[in-house]
């Protein structure tokens, strides 16, 4: 009984967050009211306050949810390849496809970047990205062993640069309608390929 209650409480919380993602993405933090969010979630404003003491707290929850989802998604369904270039390409494609399918999430990222002014959020993002950089670094080391990557590369440094390039893509996609970037399925590869090619061993 208590278990079911907890479960439904978790579900309700998730419902609120989902409604808030849409509202914040459409109207930004200042423009989206708790009324808008309550309406979209199909509950009362008072009910929201039982889960989130303030709009700011709700915003933080939305932000964490979105960053977590994007980062997790990056790693979904990776091919069983050993080739670093192929894997990085697959990562970029994943990221790109997710971005095209979830424009609201990207807008939230762009909307929340200014929160990085706070140390807490800075550490939060750094932690999320550091995990990914570590994964990429592992792939890079394998690539060096296979001879597809230049052994002279600083793998830690380059893996962070790659993570940041993924982050930049979020910006590109969030502004999609105003962009000149190449579109379509292989757009991600088109953008990343020259960079990957530049990491090959020097002749």
């Amino acid at each position: 009984m208590a278990d079911r209650k907890r479960r439904s409480r978790g579900k309700r919380r998730q419902q609120i967050i989902e409604a808030a993602v849409k509202a914040f993405a459409a109207k930004n933090y200042d423009g989206a009211s708790m009324n808008d969010i309550a309406q979209a979630a199909g509950i009362t404003k008072r009910a929201i306050y039982r889960y989130f003491p303030s709009k700011r707290e709700l915003f933080y929850a939305v932000r964490n949810e979105v960053y977590g989802t994007i980062v997790d998604n990056l790693w979904k369904e990776l091919p069983e390849a050993n080739d670093f270039n192929e894997l990085a390409d697959a990562l970029m494609r994943n990221h790109f496809r997710f971005g095209m399918d979830n424009p609201e999430m990207l807008r939230i990222v762009v909307n929340t970047i200014s929160e990085a002014a706070t140390r807490e959020f800075q550490e939060n993002i750094e932690g999320l990205l550091a995990e990914r950089a570590e994964e990429i670094e592992k792939l890079m080391r394998a690539g060096i062993e296979e001879g597809t990557l230049d052994p002279a590369l600083d793998t830690n440094f380059v893996s962070w640069i790659l993570v940041l390039i993924f982050f930049f893509l979020v910006y590109m996609l969030a502004y999609e309608e105003d962009w000149l970037i190449p579109r379509g399925e292989d757009a991600a590869s088109v953008l990343l390929r020259p960079f990957l090619a530049s990491l090959a061993p020097r002749e």
């Binding site: 750094e126 990205l129 440094f157 940041l164 390039i165 893509l169 590109m172 390929r193 020259p194 960079f195």
Partner: peptide, 25 residues
């Protein structure tokens, strides 16, 4: 046009790292 975007992404990440407080680059 495509290569220019690749070049720009490698440049723009400097601003992004700075904004996010990431010191690596």
């Amino acid at each position: 046009a495509n290569f220019a975007w690749s070049f720009i992404s490698l440049v723009e990440i400097i601003y992004i790292a700075n904004a996010l407080g990431l010191e690596v680059p």
